[in-house]
Computed example of a mutant assay.
Amino acid sequence: MGGVSMVLSDLVDVIGGGTPKTTEESYWNGSIPWLSVKDFCGDKKYVYNTEKSITVEGLNNSSTKLLHKDNIIISARGTVGELAMIPYDMAFNQSCFGLIPKGNNDPHFVYYLLKDKVRSLKSQTQGSVFDTITKATFGRIECADYSEEDQRRIASILSSLDRKIELNNKINADLEEMAQAIFKNWFVDFEPFKDGKFVDSELGMMPEGWKVGRLTDVIKLMPGGTPKTSEPLYWDNGTIPFFSPKDVNGVYCFATEKHITEAGLNKCSSNLYPKDTIFITCRGTVGKVCLVACDMAMNQSNYAIKAIDGYSQYYVFFLVKSVVERLIKKSNGAVFSAITSKDFDEEILIPSQKAVEDFTNVIDGFFRRIFAIGTENSRLSLLRDTLLPRLMSGELEVPE
């Protein structure tokens, strides 16, 4: 591998995106996934799902363009430097750039090289309101000239780690889906209780010993807050994970983008919430639910939730998710932009504490396995992120 002799724009063609006219119904809800930054925030190599989709007509009547398999998407405005690879045809908005590897450059290598250069890209941002990178930015970021063989070897090492991470994520998603199905089987369809006595209620027939109540009867709601961002004492060299909505990445949250200090924790309205506390995002990205994998604080765009004695965190985890789905449906297609404390006053069926205890015993193994796999992924991510700069700089020899 040679010295510095190239810039990023020697390796990729940079193309801009766009948004079809939002008032034109025929442009939306089609078969073409349409990317915005929120779709690919987080530690995932490929982006498979998008919140919105467009039609062929929307594609043809706007400045958005199609990206194809193994092209790359990068966020360019506001949140700069989020990256993902494209698994199949997708369009994208104007807050992103599509990056198409040139010639024989290995697309996976280019993706990892860009990950290594994110800090350099962020240092080149412009804009008075939003941090922004432009197409010209890619012509200012220097990189070494890597042979095709070096590209292939580096990409192979890092891709093997990401493949294992992705496989683990798939296993965890399947485990969550199974656990969710068990929750529905017990607390929506009442299958384990079918042979027992049922009584009538304002919410329909329910097993004897259950009652009608409010979500707030089984949970305690707790606030978040942010220490003053202009005070270095609260942030510099912080070691306390500080959660924001973009950190949701599965059942458990293991790592956060930001950290605060003890002084910062003492100067904000968030407590330090222990493992298995439930966090729900309530502003911006609304209604994402996760458990925390270690002690964490959180910002004011979230609520922390703890089950009241007699009800388990695992039961409440799925209960809160089901109530959020209901709230979103009740918004009748309008933008569901915030969850307030009064939304948690939703009427629910409250099962007997014995039913919750039995359910928790059944479900406990699922959560233990999800946590163990998530812990392994944290180690794999750390290994990948440690190897990345050393491989790219040539500090680590790439084996034959």
Rank of each mutant, 00 (worst) to 15 (best):
Q180Y: 09
A181Q: 12
A181N: 08
A181H: 08
A181R: 15
A181D: 09
I182F: 02
I182S: 09
I182P: 05
F183S: 11
K184C: 06
K184N: 14
K184R: 12
K184M: 14
N185K: 15
W186F: 14
W186D: 10
D189K: 13
D189H: 14
F190A: 02
E191P: 05
E191A: 10
E191S: 13
F193L: 00
F193G: 01
K194Y: 04
D195I: 11
D195E: 14
G196C: 07
G196M: 03
G196T: 09
K197N: 13
F198S: 01
F198L: 05
V199R: 13
V199L: 10
V199A: 02
D200T: 12
S201V: 15
S201M: 11
S201W: 07
E202N: 13
E202H: 14
E202W: 03
L203S: 09
L203G: 00
M206P: 04
M206Q: 10
P207D: 14
P207M: 14
E208H: 02
G209N: 07
G209V: 00
G209D: 09
W210R: 05
W210A: 04
K211A: 11
V212L: 09
V212M: 10
V212D: 09
V212E: 12
G213R: 07
G213W: 00
G213D: 08
G213V: 02
G213N: 11
R214L: 14
L215S: 04
L215A: 10
T216A: 14
T216C: 11
T216I: 06
T216Q: 05
D217R: 07
D217Y: 09
V218L: 02
V218N: 03
V218G: 02
V218K: 10
I219K: 00
I219V: 12
K220T: 13
P223C: 05
P223Y: 07
P223R: 02
G224H: 12
G225C: 06
T226K: 06
T226I: 04
T226Q: 03
P227V: 00
K228Y: 12
K228C: 09
K228V: 11
K228W: 00
T229A: 11
T229I: 03
T229P: 14
S230P: 10
E231T: 13
E231C: 05
P232R: 09
P232H: 08
P232K: 12
Y234T: 11
Y234R: 11
Y234P: 11
W235P: 13
D236V: 02
D236I: 02
N237V: 01
N237K: 14
N237M: 00
G238C: 06
G238M: 06
T239P: 03
T239L: 06
T239S: 12
I240H: 04
P241E: 10
P241I: 08
P241L: 12
F242T: 04
F242G: 03
F242K: 01
F243W: 03
F243L: 15
S244D: 08
P245A: 08
P245F: 04
K246L: 09
D247M: 04
D247Y: 10
V248R: 06
V248A: 03
V248N: 01
N249S: 15
N249V: 05
N249A: 15
N249Q: 15
N249K: 08
G250C: 09
G250M: 01
G250I: 08
G250E: 01
V251R: 05
V251W: 04
Y252P: 00
C253V: 15
C253K: 05
F254D: 01
F254G: 00
A255N: 15
A255D: 15
A255K: 11
